[in-house]
Nucleic acid binder design. Structure first.
Lengths: 202, 202
DNA sequence: CCTACCGATCGGTAGG
DNA sequence: CCTACCGATCGGTAGG
């Protein structure tokens, strides 16, 4: 007997990711999600408690993916200089996005449709995540590896540039995921006055 | 007899900008806009043809502001090197955002809710605008002013970082609009290997 | 997972 | 700019 490989719940989240990415959470109805799965709108509620719960599942999963990737990148480069660590952090972030751009896009753009206390919880996790970038930039600056940038401004500059990838990246595009991670790491590193490693310098 | 200084139509667009920025176009109802103006939802239609027409008015106005600012920045620096011109282009872009972050935010995030042919028209204008950045980066690269970056990737990196400002900037914040324009110009310039002028280098 | 249905709200129109 | 109203659709529930 063939068992559905991917549980229904996961299929719902995948379809919702796609639709939330394409049209946004508010412009996507529960019936839109159901239609994509060839079931009735009301049947969705056998698997999920509410539309917002689906959004939360997606946002929480994405947040977890970013957090894990950052922890790994930092653990793998502990003891290295700030430049090398920041480059690896950037690459890890880009990899999470290119691995599932729709998931990342919903995380980046639709979290504000969460109700409290989930909204607040995500804001806190985002800030903790950004702090990795902020601290590394401040550290590199103190060590003389970077220019005298404002670490808060610079980390925001870099992170919003990275998150933009979720909006336009398509796996079949001109630039591969690996190439993109390297190029973006170089752009980010240089922006704070660090040394880019991937590209040949001028 | 006191005549309303700001015509009703303008007040509608201002209120709509605020709400579209805060909750998004799809999550804002015509009645929400009316309520903020202390009139009934149906009364709005004495001044506008549709909800989408209001979105279009906002998006079109924002696009015009960006286009004018870029044209001026390029005209004012004609004959200068690519680095100087790109820095001025970045400053102009940031200034448009800080002058009216809500307007800019709706332009950046909500244009996709436009129906054809407006949606397509805005996409074309966005691409023409981005070309200014792209071309300047390619030029600076050829001139040996910048590193060997991919001009398409680098212009996207920079522009998405700049547009992020519309999401978080508040006039009462830590960093003034002028300071922000200068710091972001430096970050952008350095990201392509150009020389930052505003900050003291390491 | 279905049918049948709920009250609320949506964008918008008619006719003053 | 109002009241009164339109058909369509919304998220969600009851009861199989």
């Amino acid at each position: 007997m063939a068992i559905e490989a991917r549980p229904r719940r996961q299929a719902i989240e995948d379809v919702a990711s796609t639709l939330f990415h394409e049209r946004g959470y508010a412009a996507t109805s529960v019936r839109d999600i159901a239609r994509a799965l060839d079931i009735r709108g009301a049947s969705l509620y056998a698997h999920v408690a509410s539309k917002e719960e689906v959004l939360w599942a997606i946002v929480d999963r994405a947040a977890g993916a970013f957090e894990r990737a950052a922890d790994e990148a930092l653990a793998a480069t502990s003891g290295s200089g700030a430049g090398k660590r920041l480059a690896e952090l950037v690459r890890a972030h880009v990899r999470v996005i290119t691995a599932d751009p729709e998931l990342a896009s919903v995380f980046v753009h639709e979290w504000r449709h969460l109700a409290e206390p989930r909204r607040e919880a995500i804001l806190r996790r985002r800030d903790a995540y950004e702090a990795h970038f902020r601290n590394l930039i401040a550290e590199g600056r103190r060590a003389g590896e970077f220019d005298a940038v404002d670490s808060r401004l610079a980390s925001t500059f870099i992170l919003t540039a990275l998150n933009g990838i979720a909006t336009w990246y398509r796996p079949a595009g001109r630039v591969s995921a690996v190439e993109l991670a390297n190029r973006y790491a170089d752009l980010a590193l240089r922006s704070v006055g660090g040394v880019a490693h991937t590209e040949t310098s001028r």
